[in-house]
């Protein structure tokens, strides 16, 4: 399973790229566990989000999961491509399948590095 080393991660399987304005998506591991993603609901630009709080949802054939914001801040941009074509979360989770961007207003807390995230997913790999 791909876990790019330059990104940060959460235990809820989001990835985070950047510093002041961060880009957020879900990991390849999460996409694989979900199966084919058919629906994505995201916060709107301008919305305030809090680290660890649900701010959207991702629905697949078999299940629905909340999307948690990894950081606290203001949504500056959402990816219209994934609402039109949710399968981008499966085909390119770290690229075209990004979900939203947040202007960070509080120092991020407990984000994981790639090694720590890899350890987290190993235990639950079926």
């Amino acid at each position: 399973m791909t876990i790019p080393s330059e990104l940060s991660y959460t235990a809820e399987h989001e990835w985070v790229r950047g510093e002041d304005v961060v880009t957020v998506g879900i990991t390849a591991y999460a996409a694989d566990q979900l199966g084919d993603v058919v629906f994505v609901q995201l916060p709107e630009a301008g919305a305030e989000v809090s680290a660890g709080e649900p701010c959207g949802e991702v629905e697949s054939t078999k299940s629905v999961s909340d999307v948690y914001s990894p950081v606290t801040g203001e949504i500056t941009d959402v990816n219209p491509a994934v609402t039109d074509d949710p399968s981008l979360l499966n085909s390119d989770p770290y690229g075209e399948g990004w979900l939203f961007k947040v202007r960070v207003t509080e120092e991020p807390g407990d984000l994981l590095d790639a090694d720590a995230y890899a350890k987290l997913t190993e235990g639950s790999e079926s």
Binding site: D32, G35, D36, T61, K62, S126
Partner: peptide
């Protein structure tokens, strides 16, 4: 395959894209 417990059996849920 992604295997899953279905009615006490270890069964293939999907091999790749279920669609």
């Amino acid at each position: 395959a992604t295997l899953t417990d279905f009615a006490g059996w270890l069964m293939p849920l999907r091999y790749g894209s279920e669609s």
